[in-house]
Nucleic acid binder design. Structure first.
Length: 668
DNA sequence: TGCGGCGGCGCC
DNA sequence: AAAGGGCGCCGCCGCA
């Protein structure tokens, strides 16, 4: 495998962190300072300053012969290459499928995807060097006072050296982790295509929303200042608000009790949404004192805490001239499950409860004519999804898999007792009602919450967390009974948790051996990243647990063996000597497997859709949104449903259901 | 002033 | 022994 590693250093008047790579690369003020390249096999190095040098002929040959052209976050380098290096500086063209991303390779290895953190996780870069950042600040950003770029030749030369050093480090990281499989690389390329296509934003709506949100935030701030004598000046000042409230109620133990939340092993006082609701609710019951003043303050915080309205500004920052936001998806962004993540304009967490297209038009018209809107922040956050729109003459075709994880989990177990659950899905019956019945309970709501909450060894806490979203209020004793009944009615799940945990331990004891659990496997690979426990999903996707260790932990009544591993998503603190670790337990493994397999089904469908040139605009874990010409809506809907409901070859027998809807704006 | 840490929020 | 976990973004806080 011959591979050329690239790294660009650039400068621009636009802010990369606000606009994202695509808009940044497309901006006319963006230019290349230098580019380093390394041939990963031979080790040949190049440093190119396009302002003063022609493109190195030997590098052109190396690229021509390379199987892959690699960069950390290659979408950035690819965009710079295609938008600037080729047209402005005579760099040779590189075919799309030759591009390869080292950051994506890091993510499939379950280590951080930033070069510095990846190297740190691999133990080859202990110390952070601030010089690189200083150089970027000096050369990549115009002087804030004069607006001029610094062109100091000495600094430019130093920048080049740093650029080359990054490529050398990247080469090491590449060698210490496993390459993406052909399928993973293909999925990454498909992600590039989706990112390049982008999602269209109703920028007029976004601008109106920003105006209204700014005004409302100002009003809330004024009210808070007035109520608290200037102690609290914004609804976002969580520390001030907490201190003020505690002082105001003279450390009333009842109030403190309601404010106390457990985080890990430590108890803390919080004033998050749940606590505020609890405090305001308790106010109406007997004997609880929460004066009008504090209640008013809490309600103002509630009103202001729709932080999601900041997304409208983000839409405007990222939208290009054609009103499209590009680069929102990260292939394997979730290292532990290999699901996608979304960045920049995060399309994965937009408020679900939202206005319909017609309501959106009405509200938009009200804002155009500067009408007063009641409950502004709430109204605005319900406009987030509808702010995503299809191009003129197009519609969204939207489809999501019904209860995908509820189907995948029993299917993965291969337990004959789980067939009954799959048969309920196959029959089209109501799974939540059936679950309740199997537990000897009549309320569908309880069946629903139990199904959503208890599949991964969660107990009272997990149930209550989900129950509150459905307005279900039960005592701890009642929930404990429900948990017990659910486990009794679903013995396949309990057995699976145990089997997963045992398999992980067994795999650690027998390196290089496949240990089967239902449709998945574990294998401990000693030579990879200080020992990596690999969970292999039915499609071949590998979930990695790097730096895995089998440890004997002593308990009160004897001890037990357990597997721990380095957790990529938790970055170590500045003074930490070891990467933060987590412990595997059965329910967690079952969850990782189920989420990962659901993600594999999405990736499979995206490949199928790519092969028929389906216009996928975006996706949200279990949901695919196509932006379709109005004349093709019917055909594409049918095609989308067929692709989503046909299980992949490795999942024959898994019942899938995904009925498409047609929308003028994005909605639930 | 810049930056890491943390609390908070939203979704699947 | 029991265990909800997977994400990313915004904005404040406190330190260097």
């Amino acid at each position: 495998m011959q591979c050329v590693l690239l790294d660009f250093e650039t400068r621009s008047r636009t802010d990369l962190t606000k606009t994202g790579a695509y808009k940044y690369a497309a901006d006319p003020s963006t230019d290349i300072l230098c580019m380093s390249a390394i041939d990963s096999e031979i080790g040949d190095e190049w440093l190119w300053y396009p302002g003063t040098q022609a493109f190195p002929a030997t590098l052109a040959v190396a690229i021509e012969h390379a199987d892959l052209v690699t960069a950390v976050n290659a979408e950035f380098d690819k965009a710079i290459w295609e938008y600037i290096a080729v047209p402005d500086y005579g760099a040779p063209e590189i075919e799309h499928k030759k591009w390869y991303c080292l950051a994506a390779q890091c993510r499939v290895n379950a280590i951080p995807s930033g070069l510095e953190n990846a190297a740190r996780a691999l133990g080859i870069n202990k110390r952070k060097d601030p010089r690189g950042k200083q150089l970027i600040k000096a050369l990549s950003i115009p002087n804030p006072v004069t607006g001029e770029f610094n062109e100091d030749p000495k600094l430019m030369q130093e920048m080049g050296e740093y650029c080359l050093q990054d490529s050398r480090l990247a080469r090491k990281v590449m060698a210490l982790t496993r390459l993406m499989s052909v399928t993973e690389h293909q999925d990454w390329l498909i992600t590039c295509d989706i990112n390049e296509r982008g999602a269209k934003v109703d920028t007029e709506l976004a601008r109106l929303a920003v105006t209204y949100a700014d005004a409302e935030r100002g009003e809330i701030a004024d009210k808070l200042s007035a109520l608290t004598g200037g102690v609290i000046t914004k609804h976002t000042q969580s520390v001030r608000i907490r201190k003020w409230l505690l002082a105001e109620c003279e450390n009333d133990p009842d109030v403190i009790a309601l404010m106390t939340v457990k985080k890990g092993d430590v108890e803390k006082q919080s004033l998050d949404k749940d606590v505020r609701t609890a405090l305001l609710d308790a106010r109406t019951s007997d004997g609880f004192l929460l004066c009008q003043l504090t209640a008013d303050v809490l309600e103002l915080v509630d009103q202001g805490s729709k932080s999601s309205v900041s997304k409208f500004q983000r839409m405007l920052d990222m939208a290009e001239d054609d009103d499209r936001v590009r680069g929102a998806f990260v292939f394997a962004g979730a290292g532990q499950t290999q699901r996608f993540a979304s960045r920049g304009l995060q399309l994965h967490n937009m408020r679900r409860d939202c206005w319909k297209a017609e309501q959106t038009e009405d509200i938009k018209q009200s804002m155009r004519t500067k009408q007063i809107i009641p409950n502004v922040m709430d109204t605005l956050s319900k406009l987030l999804r509808p702010a995503l729109i299809p191009a003129p003459g197009h519609k969204f075709v939207v489809s999501d898999w019904a209860a995908i994880e509820g189907r995948v989990l029993p299917w993965l177990t291969e337990d004959p007792r789980a067939e009954a659950v799959l048969d309920i899905f196959r029959s089209g019956a109501d799974i939540y009602m059936a679950t309740a019945k199997a537990m000897g309970i009549l309320e569908r709501q309880i069946g629903k919450v139990a199904t959503l909450a208890l599949g991964y060894q969660g107990a009272v806490g997990a149930f209550q967390a989900i129950a509150k979203n459905y307005g279900l209020i039960l005592t701890e004793a009642e929930v404990l009974k429900i948990v017990f009944k659910w486990r009794e009615a679903n013995p396949w799940a309990v057995a699976y948790w145990r089997a997963c945990e045992k398999a992980a331990i067994l795999a650690m004891r027998r390196p290089g051996t496949e240990v089967k659990i239902g449709k998945c496997q574990f294998m401990f690979v000693e030579g990879l990243m200080n020992g990596t426990l690999c969970g292999i999903l039915p499609d071949g996707t590998v979930l990695q647990y790097p730096n895995a260790r089998l440890e004997y932990v002593k308990g009160k009544y004897g001890g037990k063996w357990q597997v721990s591993y380095a957790k990529a998503s938790i970055l170590p603190k500045a003074d930490a000597t070891e990467w933060p670790r987590h412990t595997l337990y059965g329910g967690l493994i079952a969850e990782n497997f189920a989420q990962g397999t659901a993600g594999a089904i999405l990736k499979y469908a995206l490949r199928e859709l790519a092969s028929v040139n389906a216009p996928v605009a975006f996706h949200v874990h279990d949901e695919i949104i196509e932006e379709v010409h109005i004349r093709a809506v019917e055909a594409r809907s049918l095609q989308l449903q067929t692709i989503m409901e046909t299980p992949p070859p490795w999942a024959v027998g898994l019942p899938l259901e995904a009925k498409p809807a047609v929308m003028q704006r994005y909605g639930k």
